[in-house]
Amino acid sequence: MATEERHNPFATAQPAGDGTTLDQQERERLRAQPLWRVRLKLLAGTLWNNWKLFTENKIGLIGLAIILFYAGLALAHPLLMGRVWDPLIYDPVIGFDPLAAPHPAPPSAQHWLGTDPLGRDVLSQLMFSTASEFILGMVAALITVTIGTSIGALAAYFGGWIDTFFMRLADLVITLPAIVLLIVLGGLFTLDLPLLALVIGILSGFGATTVIIKSQALTIKVRTYVEAAWVAGGSHWHIILRHIIPNLLPLTFLYMMFTVTDAIFAEAILSYFGLLNIRMSWGLMIHTTQSAGYLLNFQTWWLIVPPGLSITLLCAAFYLVGRALDEVVNPRLRKR
């Protein structure tokens, strides 16, 4: 008791009723629980703290708000199609409104964002495309993170020729402009959405993400708890899976956000240049406008502004969230 107070005189300033200190009570309580529950609690506590740090940065919140807005649009589309909108008129791909002619028709009460040159509702196209953007982004990000984390951890842990090979590969992927490669792939293959997600995931997984995660893994590798695990006879896999990878997770989560931005952007570019086999997307909406010859006709702004703005906003939103997370993960950037 006396030594306890000497070691940390201020945390234990108020003795509880039964003579033990709050600190000790807390410890007893923790000891009584199963280990997983303690871990879960600690995790929840960390998440809550990080969330508080995240909300301090208004920029991240702006990004989150935009993401939620578009997620709302994506969810609302099937509901609207099922209940409010007539599929014959409002279907994003095969719909046609004979009453609103001539097409493209400017925004009206029936078509809030007007119709495209083929007589389809622009808002419906916009909302329909949102879901695939999210799915594309998430799938690509998951692939990236899986590849980046495992390769990064392996390269850092084993070093040697594994490291050399993957770092040269990463060098190549980083140096080559991704869009150029994707355009070539679009010319050689018939790219569709799942394939695109795979390609983007692989590209960014083997590129910058690996390098950054590897350098982080290197710093983790030399920490005392990894050495302790090693001395205690932990196998390579045990150390990588239980000690290195869990500590890389915050960083990988951060890089997921940037991959989502890249994926959405790449999809839009490829659809815009007509190199992607897709039914409907924001990029394709601009492509349609271009092939119908309305691209430089600035009176029909509703054909270009909604998809262009949406691509920009959603890309920016994920990027902003990524930056805000960066400040959470990387304390050096934080304001005091």
Partner: peptide, 25 residues
């Protein structure tokens, strides 16, 4: 800082063809 960060990020992530069109316009 907010203005330039948001503006900077928007420029960085802007859909390039669309931005080109805006510039032409």
């Amino acid at each position: 800082e907010y203005i330039t960060t948001v503006g900077g990020v928007t420029l960085y992530t802007v859909f390039t063809p669309w931005f080109g069109l805006l510039m032409i316009w």
